[in-house]
């Protein structure tokens, strides 16, 4: 029989991990909010008694051209990543949904890229992007797509695209896997019925796969957004956000303000902007998977 003490233990089991997350994430988030309205320097870091500056840090940020560039870069970085990861992920998932020897095993192998530490991926792509001896310039030159080295990481006009491409390579396999699971849940009969009605492959994709995948796509887009908004290691290794902030995004900028310029209040204010966006997307994600009974 289940005693009262046993029930109490069960609640303790639940409270331990949830309490941990509240203590080590919830508290820092709140602490961050507090710091974002204070003037925090290396000198007063150790005390609670820091000058209150109201929205000063935020006002300063919004007036700052650098911050506006970083926001613009972040929007581009996240949007292009989410759209292309889903597009490539869907294409790969559909290809390996065909039945042929080794299909499932090969589909799984893509995940090897996603398992690598992002910092290592940044280092590896930095080597491949090397202007004079790098693999990418060599391939582009030998197939005639470029003549002469392209300075992927030192040309401010293309560095953001270079960083985005590396992150797409990293993120796509996981997105592909989630989409595969969604596709596998579509009842086969729908395709058979569509075929009987004379629908070709493209029509079956448009009128069966896409509509049936709508909820999965929304959930996956939310997850991809959340994951892309936390990208740090890969960009830090590739370009450190440079040159002249051309590939700088919110997490890097916040980190630089805090730990390179020791403007902790500014770093916290930048973080708040991201937190609000991430929080909204996370709630949307939870809502989507809650309302999706078919999955």
């Amino acid at each position: 029989m289940q005693t009262r003490r046993d029930a109490a233990i069960l609640w303790l089991f639940l409270i331990l991990p949830v309490g941990y997350m509240v203590a080590f994430v919830g508290y820092p988030v709140v602490y961050n909010l507090v710091m974002s309205v204070q003037d925090v320097t290396l000198g007063n870091l150790a005390t609670w008694d820091r000058p209150f500056v109201g929205l000063g840090n935020y006002v300063e940020l919004i007036a700052n051209e650098r911050f506006r560039l970083v926001v613009r870069n972040s929007v581009i970085f996240v949007t292009v990543n989410v759209v292309l990861q889903i597009a490539f992920g869907l294409a790969i998932a559909l290809y390996f949904e065909n039945r042929f020897p080794g299909a499932r095993y090969m589909r799984g192998l893509f995940l090897a890229a996603w398992m690598l530490p992002p910092l290592v991926i940044g280092a590896l792509w930095k080597w491949m992007y090397a202007a004079d001896y790098g693999l990418i310039n060599y391939v582009l030159e030998s197939i005639g797509l470029s003549d002469g080295p392209i300075y992927w990481l030192s040309n401010p006009d293309i560095v953001l695209a270079a960083v985005i491409a590396a992150n797409i390579w990293f993120g796509t396999p996981f997105i592909m896997l989630l989409l595969s699971a969604g596709i596998a849940n579509i009842p086969r009969e729908l395709y058979e019925a569509a075929s009987l009605d004379g629908a070709g492959a493209i029509q079956r994709f448009r009128f069966v796969t896409l509509p049936m995948l709508k909820a999965t796509l929304l959930a996956v887009a939310c997850l991809a957004t959340v994951y892309t908004m936390r990208a740090f290691d890969l960009i830090w290794a590739l370009s450190q956000g440079g040159p002249i902030d051309a590939s700088n995004v919110l997490p890097l900028y916040s980190y630089q303000l805090s730990f390179e310029q020791f403007r902790f209040g500014g770093g916290s204010a930048v973080a708040t902007f991201s937190f609000v966006v991430v929080f909204i997307v996370a709630l949307l994600y939870v809502r989507t998977i809650r309302h999706e009974k078919a999955m």
């Binding site: 988030v29 961050n32 710091m35 936390r230 805090s258 902790f264 997307v281 996370a282 939870v286």
Partner: peptide, 17 residues
């Protein structure tokens, strides 16, 4: 799930303090 989504590089500042 919601707490888990907060980006670590942005938590780094309060974590450090």
């Amino acid at each position: 799930v919601v707490l888990q989504t907060f980006p670590e590089a942005l938590l780094a500042t309060p974590m450090f303090v």
